[in-house]
């Protein structure tokens, strides 16, 4: 079996204690939620923290509840709980659908929403054992100096591969980050950056505590489509999340589309303001699909043909809306 590198495990009961541990062991510590991303990565020697801080015992990170006009989801809520939560299913069918599409049943029980949002970016040249990466000659995300995806590239373009991120982006969610200095809330749109080495703005001394999703008014429709070769236990080759707010007369107030699993940052499709006031009919949806297609260019960071992944964008946009309006 692949071994885990040795580390000291901490299981604080309070958020403040967890933050103190992060501070104390700065540079040598990793947080662990469900561990479904971190543990394989440690076995691959992508991370070798001397200290690992578990978040399971901290009760304030758990649970889904309504708060003001928001649905607040604790970072430690398991993906399985998210997938079967009736309020989530009712308010945000696309989020429930994305959660159900993650990994397999056992991993969904272990994995958490916070862990999913903080998922390390993925690349075929990176998520491999140490021996494999050594045979390759490493790459600039870890231990090396070159990128094998963009030859001669100076920037890592490993793929954002989390299924919930694109959906929560279309829903206008924000996240709360706690640090020894207090708490800050930032829109998810500003949480992700286009850097494959670290694609979020979270600081090493911060913990993601909760996700806030505005509770929709009538007329919001949401959809999610995931392209994968295998029907379960398969990271996305392409994610398409859509959300549209319709007025009473059916006209669009706004529409959002996020395409992911292409580059390091989930791509929020730009310049959709012009769709305001239009009916969400077949012609509009086809145009939306074309808009997304124009703006997205898959990379070879995944071993699935890029041309096909791109061609699937308009198809999946259409299917996501069809599902949304069911």
């Amino acid at each position: 079996m692949l071994t885990l590198p040795p580390f000291e495990y901490h299981a604080p009961m309070e958020l403040a204690d967890a933050l103190a541990l992060l501070q104390k062991h700065a540079g040598k510590v990793k947080l662990i939620a469900g561990g479904t991303d971190l543990v394989p990565n440690m076995k691959h020697r992508l991370f070798m923290p001397e200290h690992v801080v578990g978040l399971k015992q901290i009760s304030e990170l758990n649970g889904v509840r309504g708060e003001g006009g928001f649905l607040v989801i604790g970072a430690m809520t398991s993906i399985a709980d998210l997938a079967r939560n009736p309020r989530v299913a009712l308010l945000f069918p696309s989020l429930a659908r994305a959660a159900t599409a993650i990994a397999g049943p056992q991993l969904r029980e272990m994995g958490t929403l916070g862990g999913n949002l903080c998922l390390d970016t993925r690349c075929v040249y990176y998520n491999q054992t140490h021996f494999w990466r050594k045979a390759l000659g490493y790459c600039l995300k870890k231990d090396g100096t070159v990128c094998h995806v963009v030859k001669g590239g100076q920037k890592c373009v490993a793929a954002a591969s989390n299924d919930t991120a694109p959906v929560l982006l279309t829903l206008g969610a924000s996240v709360e980050l706690a640090s020894p200095n207090g708490r800050r809330a930032i829109p998810l749109e500003e949480f992700y950056v286009a850097d494959g080495v670290a694609n979020t703005v979270i600081e090493p001394n911060e913990i993601l505590t909760k996700v806030r999703v505005p509770i929709p008014r009538a007329g919001l429709v949401t959809g999610y489509q995931k392209l994968r070769i295998r029907a379960a236990i398969d990271y996305p080759s392409l994610c398409v999340a859509v959300a549209a707010q319709q007025q009473a007369d059916g006209k669009l107030e706004w529409v959002r589309m996020v395409i992911s699993a292409l580059g390091s940052k989930p791509h929020t499709v730009k310049r959709l303001e012009g769709f305001q006031g239009r009916a969400l009919d077949a012609a509009t949806i086809a145009e939306l699909g074309q808009a997304a297609h124009r703006q997205c260019h898959p990379l070879t960071n995944i071993n699935v043909e890029t041309g096909w992944r791109r061609e699937m964008i308009p198809v999946f946009v259409r299917r996501a809306f069809a599902e949304a309006m069911k």
């Binding site: 397999g104 998520n127 494999w132 390759l136 070769i229 295998r230 029907a231 379960a232 071993n303």
Partner: peptide, 24 residues
């Protein structure tokens, strides 16, 4: 089973080398 021109296997794991699950 696919290889890079160097002879390195492209994904020697059950995640990259996909076999069907019960859903497939």
């Amino acid at each position: 089973m696919t290889y890079y021109p160097s002879g390195l296997h492209k994904g020697p794991s059950l995640l990259d080398y996909r076999i069907p699950t019960s859903v497939d």
